[in-house]
Design a protein around this nucleic acid. Structure first.
Lengths: 233, 233
DNA sequence: CAGTGGTCTAGACCACTCG
DNA sequence: GAGTGGTCTAGACCACTGA
């Protein structure tokens, strides 16, 4: 026998990674087909398929019908980012969560918000902004616009106690969204709320969500410069 | 019959999503078991399993053995981030890629670099920094430290023409890494290189990679504030 | 048009965990 | 201990696509 039994998809992945990392299969290599690997490993093709499919999803392999599977030459690696509710993020860091409603106004969208949500200027919206605190210290400033017809209950939501994010997550399903990460200098208002110097760099996350083609909400979240978002790959 | 044939895993996913979005299954609902769904949809359990497993991976469902599958109450949604090579990112935006080597020095690590890579102060390292340009304009400043014993060929790499990133990706495999996103105010040097005002907010990405337990490289990439990273969910 | 990956099926065994 | 999801198998058909 030339090869011990490798009959779990994770074992197959480990073996493939071992060969890639050992440069037995350097970038660009065309690796054997699923049937061949299955035979060599002593397992079913479905097992090899799952192993290879998942590695391709992370960008390590590239698969094409007829052409086969090769080790990615220019790996566009995929990293998975967790997007938790802010309260949970704070609590998972072991800090006490605090919440302050800053503003709650029924108003038409600003031009920026209009553009992001693709809504008319006279759309019926709720503008809600709030602070999230970690151990009494400013953690995140949230500035949100909600399209009222898409989430009618929002007008009765107890936003003085609960962030709009938490209310929406439980009450209004969405089908897809877009997240945008960037940096910006703190405006005087943001500086005051986040207790940083004016012009201090902030980490910005903007999120827009839809249900089917109907826009629900746009939110801009600003974090102090000492915040960072982490992911493993 | 109560239900048309839904016999592809994507059709099953669509049906599940439809029921969640239609609030037929609001957050927290315990949904039917795999066998039951398979029978209702007229497909095999494996098909339902794949559909549900993938939805659970994105955070929409939560699955536990014995307890069953429920619609996530506090959805920690997962977003997938593409991490391309900078040259490809620039080219895919339709801009011309440019590259300038700024510095190339063999030196011991700074305290920050030491901490990130968990290396001793006298480790043998190459410090390489460079600018990536899009249509002749500054796009990203890359400041990198490479642990020479982990990537010996780096000393002969043509870093005057090719970024260390591109060379490493093809020549040195890695097993895992950590990425950290944050914001910072531009130092005088960064401001000059990126052609922004001193103190201007920069988007910062720091990446550390290892092969098994052996650190390979640490890189800090700074982007002008007009840059943003996007992902869909 | 032939060979690759993509998927589905029916059945089985297993591991975990909740009641 | 029983029931759920987690996985593997052997076989089959299909869609795509590059030679």
């Amino acid at each position: 026998m030339s090869q011990a039994q490798i009959n779990s998809y994770q074992a197959v992945q480990a073996e493939i990674m071992k060969r890639i990392q050992g440069r037995e299969w350097p970038p660009g290599t065309l690796i054997p087909g699923e049937m061949e690997l299955a035979e060599a490993f002593g397992c079913a093709r479905a097992t090899v398929n799952r192993a290879l499919r998942e590695l391709a999803e992370t960008g390590i392999l590239e698969r094409k019908r007829r052409a086969g599977t090769r080790v990615a030459l220019n790996p566009v690696r995929k990293a998975v980012l967790d997007i938790p509710i802010t309260r949970h993020e704070i609590e998972s860091r072991g800090a006490a969560y605090g919440y302050n409603l800053v503003e709650r106004t029924r108003a038409g969208p600003t031009p920026t918000v209009q553009a992001r949500l693709e809504l008319p200027a006279d759309a019926d919206m709720l503008h809600v902004s709030c602070m999230h605190l970690a151990d009494q210290r400013p953690f995140q400033f949230e500035d949100r616009w909600v399209h009222i017809p898409a989430a009618p209950g929002i007008l009765e939501a107890p936003l003085d106690r609960l962030s709009a994010n938490e209310w929406l997550v439980q009450e209004v399903p969405y089908s897809h969204g877009r997240i945008l990460f960037s940096a910006a200098n703190a405006t005087p208002r943001e500086a005051e709320l986040l207790e940083v110097a004016e012009g201090s760099a902030l980490f910005i996350v903007e999120r827009t969500t839809w249900l089917a083609c109907s826009p629900i909400t746009f939110v801009r979240m600003s974090y102090r410069a000492d915040y960072s978002m982490v992911t493993e790959l």
